[in-house]
Design a protein around this nucleic acid. Structure first.
Lengths: 140, 140
DNA sequence: CTATAACCCAGCGGAATACTGGGAAATACA
DNA sequence: TGTATTTCCCAGTATTCCGCTGGGTTATAG
């Protein structure tokens, strides 16, 4: 039950961009050197983040990446889903109502997987990059 | 962010035992045939469940496994942790306070991983086998 | 023109996951 | 007493996925 490095590196990198927000682009090299990530691996993550519309890029010398909107407007869920796809604790939990296990015993556990998924989503969808910058926890 | 088959098969198998509670042992064969699991794989899971004290076994003909206590007294968290170890979303989230990342930027994300972990544990620790049998959701 | 960056794509090594197989020891029942 | 049935135990294996490497191309600043 672990997040892959994609999610972890990705969130970390995005926090980095957030801390620089409004101060021009940061290059992949800067980020990966700071955190000891592999350059080309980071590149792939940023490619996905860009496709998801979370960052903008600037090519060429002095180029790099920038957040595409305010840190308070990007939440961790956006980042993780861009990099890892939707949260899916067990296969069946994301299927539609007609999925075969609906009639079998499997269904006794299905609600459980859905609840776990929902609780994860609930955390990551209510935490913005700005919250992380300010080291804020979710008030509960 | 997926549970392994260990966790999924394991919970399912335990629900099966729960449905039979008080009616003698069920063999691995019965369970694995019903759900199309591999016999020997199931065997390994039950070995772990037994070590964790969640089931008792009865060897020989007409033997099998039984819950070691009432279904309402075994929760999903017990089962998943017995089979997969403790929930650990990111490495650092389960380290102690002195872990090195405490001073680095990593810490801005650490609370996040901990919150995700806690929210998962919160779900699985408040759902008993009896709840599953009765298809009860967590009231929220 | 040159250095520096993003971009793009293909492949690969290693670890973990999911599973197989064989042979023991215990128990029920004939 | 013997046989079928079951747990028990351990070792190996197939496969998948994760994390990463490497090659080259295109854009931009100075």
């Amino acid at each position: 039950m672990r997040l892959s490095t994609k999610g972890r590196y990705g969130v970390l990198a995005m926090v980095e961009l957030a801390l620089h927000y409004g101060q021009g682009p940061i290059s992949i090299k800067e980020i990966s050197e700071k955190h000891n990530f592999s350059d080309s691996y980071m590149e792939q993550l940023f490619s996905a983040l860009k496709n998801a519309g979370l960052v903008r890029s600037q090519r060429g010398a002095h180029g790099g990446y920038l957040l595409s909107r305010d840190p308070s407007d990007i939440n961790v869920g956006d980042i993780i889903r861009a990099l890892e796809g939707p949260i899916e604790v067990a296969e069946c939990a994301n299927k539609n109502e007609n999925y075969e296990c609906i009639k079998s015993l499997d269904c006794l556990t299905r609600g459980l997987w859905e609840d776990i998924r929902d609780s994860i989503n609930n955390v990551i969808d209510h935490r913005s990059l700005r919250d992380l910058m300010e080291n804020k926890s979710l008030e509960r």
